[in-house]
C-alpha cells in the first residue's frame, strides 16, 4: 500500500461537459474498467472482507449477490469510497486509485445509487439531479454573483430523464416528495446515469418497488449498459439478477465464492453457492462479448 499515491486518477471529471458525456466506453471491452484485488476490511476482530477480487468490464452488468453478512455492502462501500480497505488494490481504467471519501469516487466517475435513495424531498427534480454539482450562469452573474443556471439545469435534467425513456416524469420543477417510489428511484438512477462517467453502482434499486416499476428500473439498467457504462447491481431479487446481469459475483462469508453467468448456472445453483450448499471449482467465466 503506497500511502503517498495520488488520491484519485488523473482522469477528467466526467460531468465537466454537462450531462451524458459521450465517454469512449466502447473503446476497450477486454480490459476491466474497475478491478479490485485482495480487498481486506476488518472491523475490530470481525472480518468484513477477506481478500476479495472483482472485475467489472465496460458495457456489462455485474450483479453482486450474497446472503446477509456476506460482505456485499462492505465490498461496495470500499469501491465507492465510503470505506477505506485495510489492504488490497482498486484500479479504475488500470490506474490505482485510493478513495478516501465518496466524493473521490464520484469525481473519478463512479456513481452510486444508494438503497435509501438519497434524494431531497423538498427540492424539485432538476435540483436533485444537480445537487452538489450545480451549474452557474455564464458571465459575471455566475462567476461574481454565483447565480445558478436554473433554466439550463432544468432543460438538461429533462433531457437526462427523457434519455432513459422515463415517460411518467414530465415536469422537472416538480418537488420529489410528490413522486411515487418508482419515480423517485428513476430520479436517483437518472442522476447516476447523467454523471456516471465510467461506473454506476446500484444498491438494491428494485427492493422498494412494485413489479412494473421494478421492470422499468431494469430497463434503465440495460440502457446504461448499452451506453457502455460498467454497472454493478447489488440485489436480493434473484429473478431480477438473472434477468439483467451478464455476470454474477457471489459473495460468501466475506470472500468471493466465484463468478457465474445466468446461462452457465441456474438460479437454484446460484442460491446454493450463495448459501454454501454448493461449491464452484471451475474457473470464473470471462467477460461478456
Amino acid at each position: 500500500m503506497s500511502a503517498d499515491a495520488p488520491p484519485t486518477t488523473d482522469q477528467p471529471v466526467a460531468h465537466q461537459g454537462g450531462l451524458f458525456p459521450t465517454a469512449e466506453p466502447s473503446s476497450d471491452r477486454t480490459h476491466p474498467v474497475l478491478s479490485a484485488r485482495g480487498l481486506v476490511k476488518t472491523f475490530g476482530r470481525v472480518v468484513g472482507l477477506d481478500g476479495v477480487d472483482l472485475d467489472l468490464y465496460p458495457g456489462e452488468v455485474l450483479a453482486v449477490i450474497g446472503d446477509n453478512g456476506a460482505g456485499k455492502s462492505t465490498l461496495i462501500k470500499c469501491l465507492t469510497g465510503a470505506l477505506v480497505p485495510d489492504s488490497g488494490e482498486i484500479r479504475l481504467d488500470g490506474q490505482v486509485v485510493h478513495f478516501k471519501r465518496p466524493q473521490d469516487a464520484r469525481d473519478a466517475g463512479i456513481e452510486t445509487v444508494y438503497q435509501q435513495l438519497a434524494v431531497i424531498p423538498a427540492l424539485d427534480i432538476a435540483s436533485n439531479l444537480y445537487l452538489a454539482r450545480e451549474e452557474r450562469r455564464p458571465g459575471p452573474l455566475g462567476s461574481v454573483l454565483r447565480m445558478l443556471d436554473k433554466k439550463g439545469m432544468k432543460e438538461r435534467a429533462g433531457q437526462a430523464v427523457q434519455g432513459l425513456g422515463i415517460q411518467t416524469i414530465q415536469n422537472m420543477g416538480q418537488a420529489v416528495e410528490t413522486l411515487s417510489g418508482g419515480q423517485r428511484q428513476a430520479v436517483a438512477v437518472s442522476r447516476a446515469a447523467a454523471f456516471g462517467g465510467k461506473v454506476v453502482i446500484l444498491d438494491e434499486p428494485t427492493a422498494a418497488l412494485g413489479v412494473k416499476e421494478g421492470n422499468q428500473v431494469l430497463e434503465m439498467i440495460r440502457q446504461l449498459r448499452d451506453r457502455g457504462l460498467g454497472i454493478i447491481l447489488i440485489s436480493h431479487n434473484m429473478p431480477h439478477v438473472w434477468d439483467v446481469a451478464d455476470r454474477i459475483h457471489i459473495q460468501r462469508l466475506g470472500g468471493s465464492a466465484g463468478v457465474i453467468t445466468p446461462s452457465s448456472h441456474s438460479m437454484t445453483d446460484g442460491v446454493a453457492v450463495m448459501t454454501g450448499a454448493m461449491r464452484l471449482d471451475d474457473g470464473t467465466p470471462g467477460p461478456v462479448r
Partner: peptide, 21 residues
C-alpha cells in the same frame, strides 16, 4: 445560489444530502 440549495437540502434530509455529495 448552490449554497442556498444546500441549506434546504441539509435541513430536509441531512443524510441524503451528504450521500449526494
Amino acid at each position: 445560489t448552490a449554497w442556498g440549495r444546500h441549506v434546504y437540502a441539509v435541513g430536509d434530509d441531512r443524510e441524503s444530502a451528504r450521500l449526494s455529495g
